[in-house]
Simulated assay, not measured.
Amino acid sequence: MAKDSKKYKRKKKLGSYHYVSVVFSAALALFVIGLFGTLILQANKLTSVIKENIELQVYLNKDISSNQRTRIEREITSSDYILVTEGKPELTFISKEEAAQQFIEDTGEDFTEFLGKNPLRDALTIKVNETYQSNEQLQSVQDQIESISGVYEVTYVENLADSINENLTKLSVILIGIALILVVVVLLLINNAIKLALFSQRFLIRSMQLVGAKSSFIRTPFLKRSLLHGALAGLIASGLLYGLKQFANSEIKGLEELQQQELVFALYGLLIVLGAVIAYFSTLKAMNKYLKMSLDELY
């Protein structure tokens, strides 16, 4: 009999409820939104990688001297349109001999045997700064470089940059739209889970009101527990995401290169904070509802 009495008291302790289902539901919802957040981060990194690989081929005049070539390189690297990575301009020199060797390796045919000479030219490959990647700006950059003495021709894949930018813009709009929908769904899921969990406490809340307890006194233990449970749900979701990330990195080659560790861990922190905040305000909303209900409405 004493055991049953203790069990009953534990069930009726103010602020306690069946939180396992709440934490599980919140963790699952936060895991989904964290997974999508990871996808957005990966997409942004992939976007940067794609844009960083837009190149121009600068072909030089034949029999150009090394001094002339150095002057051309210096003029190009001092321009705003060239991409600079870690303080180093993205410019690569490819000699005509290297180009011929690469062509032979790719095709398996040695064109110098029947031509008797190497018709290729020395070339510079430059990567373009993101702010100069529209078709009009690339055309302007092409004109600037071709005006340099010693430059024979500048080529690039026309409309590639515009096509990439257009497709990436569409993708960004779609991802943001889906993210907003997911946030709303997560809010509803966590809010409903907490509301159902607090439903079992409605008569205890009424009893506390009848003995003169203030609303702030009744709300406090529920709100404190909601912060803890929400943060725990975010921590569980972050742990699941980390495990999934490690597994994906081991299975998919090159995936880790698209990940920015600082942003990934910032996302985990955001999930913990988001879980705590959503749980807190959902609990506050539910508590205010039950505190204002009449006895008939409670039944």
Rank of each mutant, 00 (worst) to 15 (best):
E136C: 04
N249W: 07
K245L: 11
E52F: 09
Q42W: 12
V157Q: 14
N159W: 04
L187K: 03
L274Q: 04
F281T: 08
Q57D: 15
R202I: 00
T107L: 11
A26W: 02
A231D: 13
K195Q: 08
G87W: 05
L204E: 01
I218P: 03
L187C: 04
K96M: 08
F114P: 07
I104W: 00
L188T: 13
L91C: 08
N288I: 04
Q261E: 15
V277T: 14
Q68S: 10
V20I: 10
S65I: 05
F203Y: 11
I190M: 10
D296G: 03
L270I: 09
R10H: 13
Y299S: 09
A27K: 03
P89G: 06
N192V: 06
F103G: 02
T112S: 09
L115R: 08
V186N: 08
K245R: 05
V185K: 02
T85N: 10
A27T: 05
L171N: 07
A123W: 04
A231K: 12
S79V: 06
L210H: 07
L210C: 00
E251L: 10
G116D: 11
A161S: 15
E97N: 13
L198A: 01
D80I: 11
S5H: 11
S134E: 04
I236Q: 06
Q102R: 07
F217I: 13
S78L: 08
A29S: 11
S250Q: 15
R74V: 01
I236F: 10
L188C: 03
Q137A: 14
K224R: 13
F281L: 06
K13P: 05
T220L: 01
E73V: 15
